[in-house]
Nucleic acid binder design. Structure first.
Lengths: 157, 157
DNA sequence: CGTAATCCCATGATATTCCATAGATATCCA
DNA sequence: TGGATATCTATGGAATATCATGGGATTACG
């Protein structure tokens, strides 16, 4: 499974094109669909990105809900309804729609941030602030990693 | 299996024709029947759409209800009774009947919303409101996806 | 014969592909 | 060790293909 690490700042050209970091692309080179899936973060003013296969996993999980239930509908609308599937061009770039650029407040540069199985795309300035906040929260709360999945909280409807 | 995502707004012409987004069509290009199945949503003022092969899945799920129960009867009536099968024309469009247009409150534009294994067709204005509601409900209810179950998920390396 | 549904093509807009350049990094050989 | 060369990556621009959409022609049907 694709693992995204580190952060890389790339240029966003006037057509909305931006190179996906080479390291991210090789992490996804086994994927059927060569490209990424992006959507607007629920928690931050940034974009979140996944490999295609991650989306089919999510779809499988969604299928655990009743197909016509409210919960299924809400989740599907928020997740799939606002996602976009962006293929790499021949040079490993994707094209961000004006919509996405506005949401993330991007101008001429953007930083790709590896977060394990997903990544985020930030305005460089916002990301620095975000990083500070995250560090401080970890220090004050003494946040640590949970043990490997002990408690499988099954939120079933 | 067809996986629909993202949302695309297209024009509805005076003949009732509307282009199905190219991405949705390629998601269905392996289908025997080249077209979609639509019916009126039970929960919202919108249309719901499936690939033809998905209908048999729905049928299987319906069979999990008691064959002669009220619930089975109600669901089957609501779903199959109002469903229409719409083929693509040579340019990838479908034709919406006045009936469907009225039900969804469509005028000159409509947005196709990918929801995983199904999609919806909305009046653009209504969809924005719907999206807001869905996002808020997820945040307030802390709705999350159940963790992937390893029995079903095909393990990729 | 008239109405409606289907098919077919033209067009503009948009997206995708292709190529060229430059910078950085890695490789190789003296 | 140092310098030259090759390779890979990011970026910009231009050529090309695809898609959405409108109008018109053709067919089916009452």
């Amino acid at each position: 499974m694709a693992l995204f690490l580190s952060n890389v700042t790339n240029k966003l050209d006037k057509k909305g094109r931006i190179s996906v970091p080479s390291a991210f692309r090789v992490a996804m080179k086994e994927e059927d669909f060569q490209g990424v899936v992006l959507f607007q973060s629920n928690n931050h003013q940034c974009l979140e990105g996944f490999a295609w296969s991650t989306m089919s996993d999510i779809n499988n999980r969604l299928d655990h809900f009743d197909m016509f239930s409210d919960a299924q509908d809400d989740l599907a609308t928020a997740i799939f309804g606002s996602a976009v599937q962006l293929p790499f061009d021949g040079d490993g770039r994707i094209i961000l729609s004006k919509n996405l650029i506005d949401f993330a407040g991007l101008s001429d540069q953007a930083v790709f941030v590896g977060l394990g199985s997903k990544f985020q795309i930030w305005n460089p300035h916002d990301f620095e602030k975000r990083q500070d906040v995250a560090r401080k929260k970890i220090q004050s709360k003494k946040l640590t990693l949970p043990k490997s999945d002990d408690q499988k909280g099954e939120g079933r409807s």
